[in-house]
Computed example of a mutant assay.
Amino acid sequence: MKKYLILILLLFSYLTLSAQTLSGTFKNGNDSISFSDDKVSFRITGFAGLSTVQVGEGSHEFVEDFMLVNTTDYSGPKSTYNAQNAANSDTCTIKVVSMNNYPVQGILVESKNGSDKIIGASVTGADGKIVITDYEKISKMTFSAMGYHSITIDFSPGNDFVVKIAENDIIENSTVAFKFNKIDDETISLILLTDDLDISRNLSKELDKLNKKARKTNLIGKRFTKELPYYTR
């Protein structure tokens, strides 16, 4: 009898695992999530502000009705910067541009001291620039705005800086938790619960807490449909 029970449990585990095995790309408009073996990459909106795109990639695993993505370094475009000799000895000019080198307005620039305390803040104008005259205590600068990949740079006097800022909220080196529902072989539903799950705590309790919070805030799952191969004669 015990042997039969063990076989039934093993079969059930296999069927559950098989049911959660996914491959290919699932899409919802411009949003997408792609599976290849244990790897996954996603581009998703609607969970961090209406227009904010969240992107990430890494390995994934299923825990009950949840999918966890252990994100790695993002392979797509990311924010970068370049330092060059200052044009004026008593000022520091910083210009923020897009990946296509157009000035970006409305980027928050925070100056920080050696203790990582914010000691000043400015917002880039229509020309994408800010000019700093009092920089003796500045150690680092952080550039951020909703819908962009934030970046922190080391500040050094005697330099001007050009920051090339990438679009999208890039999630790296953290665990993303999705509420997952496989509707059929070609349709899945996802709710992004958190982009920074604390895996050091009791996982079941943390996921249950996040799921209850999503219900209270009436988060609705986003449906993704599998992109079928296109054949031509």
Rank of each mutant, 00 (worst) to 15 (best):
K2A: 03
K2V: 04
K2G: 05
K3C: 09
I6E: 15
L7N: 12
L9H: 11
L10V: 13
L10K: 11
L10M: 14
L11I: 15
F12Y: 13
A19S: 12
Q20T: 03
G24T: 03
F26L: 04
K27H: 03
G29D: 04
N30I: 08
N30V: 13
D31M: 02
I33D: 01
S34W: 04
S36C: 08
S36R: 10
V40T: 07
F42T: 02
G46T: 05
S51Y: 11
S51H: 06
V53F: 03
Q54R: 09
Q54W: 05
G58Q: 02
E61S: 09
F66V: 04
M67F: 05
T72N: 04
D73F: 14
D73Y: 14
D73P: 06
S75N: 10
K78H: 05
S79M: 06
S79E: 02
N82W: 10
A83V: 04
Q84T: 10
N85V: 12
N85Q: 10
N85A: 13
N88T: 05
S89H: 10
D90M: 12
C92R: 02
I94T: 07
V97D: 01
V97L: 08
Y102L: 04
P103R: 02
Q105W: 06
Q105R: 13
I107W: 02
I107C: 03
E110R: 15
E110G: 09
S111V: 02
N113C: 08
N113Q: 14
G114L: 06
D116I: 12
D116E: 15
G120I: 13
S122A: 15
T124C: 07
A126E: 15
D127S: 15
D127R: 14
I132W: 15
I132V: 14
Y135L: 03
E136F: 14
E136I: 10
E136C: 01
K137L: 12
S139L: 05
T142R: 13
I153R: 01
D154C: 08
F155M: 04
S156F: 09
N159M: 09
N159Y: 08
F161Y: 15
F161C: 00
V162P: 01
V162H: 03
V163Y: 01
V163F: 01
K164P: 00
I165V: 01
I165P: 00
I165E: 00
A166I: 09
A166R: 05
N168A: 08
N168H: 09
S174G: 00
T175V: 14
V176P: 01
N181Y: 06
K182Y: 00
I183E: 01
D184Y: 11
D185T: 10
E186N: 13
T187I: 06
I188V: 09
I188A: 03
I188E: 00
S189L: 01
S189R: 01
L190N: 07
I191Q: 05
D195W: 13
D195Y: 12
L197M: 11
L197Y: 11
L197H: 08
S200E: 13
R201P: 02
R201K: 14
N202H: 09
E206I: 10
L207H: 02
N211L: 05
K212E: 11
K213V: 07
K213R: 11
A214H: 06
A214W: 04
T217G: 01
L219V: 10
L219P: 08
I220Y: 03
K222M: 04
T225E: 11
K226A: 07
E227I: 12
E227L: 15
E227D: 08
P229E: 15
Y231K: 10
Y231R: 13
T232K: 06
R233D: 14
R233E: 15
